[in-house]
């Protein structure tokens, strides 16, 4: 029974910035261990939607349930969800005044109350998984963009989240660094993590996504398996979007 409960439920979610309607009746379920790729033109509300899932943004109508907990004004619910959901940002957002290792151990120690030694061991484990254990004592400013983004992934994983959110994790990177980050995300997907990932990397979507969701102007326009979406788009908007992306690459 509990196995069947979806990891994330978005039910007719609406959000406005002032008078601008940025999310319109967004309804989507993400199953446990499902990997969803969200794509769509710039300004279509992808970031807003994904940020509503860990309540960095507050929705105004509809229901969001994450891992069985509904997102409300209740602060305890918020704490629970923030622990269960990890997030990776386009601009990395590492803490520049802390070392790589401290970036990774801060939340486990202060939020999960993990002993320092244990947190450091855990952090080193994840830094090895993202293949940069040797950088542990450096500061973020001393790393390349690709390395920083891999640290950001490791930092989120150190909280042992059940769900990982990615908001365009490779769009701030130079082309030669995109692959190292995508490889990290592929191996994370292989480990069975529930993932919602905003990205325009179609190769990545084909390789790992169970489902691709296409958003435009605040709505979910179309969704389906990557093959179906990319080879047989049903709506004109998706066709247009795909043609623009392919031309762009």
């Amino acid at each position: 029974m509990a196995e069947e409960a979806p990891a994330i439920v978005l039910d007719k979610v609406n959000k406005w910035y002032g008078t601008m309607h940025v999310l319109r009746d967004v309804t989507m379920n993400v199953a446990q261990k499902e990997r969803v790729v969200v794509c769509g033109p710039s300004g279509s509300g992808k970031s807003t939607m994904i940020r509503c899932i860990n309540r960095l943004e507050v929705h105004q109508e509809g229901r969001i349930v994450v891992d069985g907990t509904e997102l409300t004004d209740d602060l305890r619910a918020l704490d629970t969800i923030r622990r269960e959901v990890g997030m990776v940002f386009q601009s990395f957002n590492l803490f520049p005044h802390l070392t790589i290792l401290e970036n990774c151990t801060l939340a486990p120690i202060s939020v999960r109350k993990m002993p320092k030694a244990e947190a450091e061991e855990l952090a080193m484990d994840f830094l090895r998984k993202v293949k940069i254990p040797e950088q542990a004592k450096k500061y973020p400013g001393q790393l390349s963009g690709g390395q920083q983004q891999r640290v950001a992934i490791a930092r989120a994983l150190c909280m042992k989240p059940k769900i990982m959110l990615f908001d365009e994790p490779t769009s701030a990177l130079d082309p030669e660094m995109i692959k190292e980050v995508l490889d990290t995300m592929v191996s994370l997907a292989d480990s069975g993590m529930t993932m919602v990932c905003v990205t325009h990397e179609m190769g990545f979507a084909r390789m790992v996504a169970d489902r691709v969701v296409f958003m435009d102007r605040g709505e979910i326009v179309e969704s389906g398996t990557p093959t179906r979406m990319f080879e047989d788009p049903q709506t004109d908007r998706l066709k247009l979007f795909l043609s623009q992306i392919l031309r762009g690459h």
């Binding site: 860990n54 990890g86 601009s91 590492l94 803490f95 801060l106 939340a107 202060s110 939020v111 989120a156």
Partner: peptide, 25 residues
């Protein structure tokens, strides 16, 4: 803004975020 958001996303409380992340910087 990303600094505070990253701290929020990691589940840090207001005071943890302030004392460890935003204020020192």
């Amino acid at each position: 803004k990303g600094q505070a958001e990253a701290a929020d996303a990691l589940g840090l409380s207001y005071w943890q975020k302030t004392m460890r992340i935003t204020l020192p910087q």
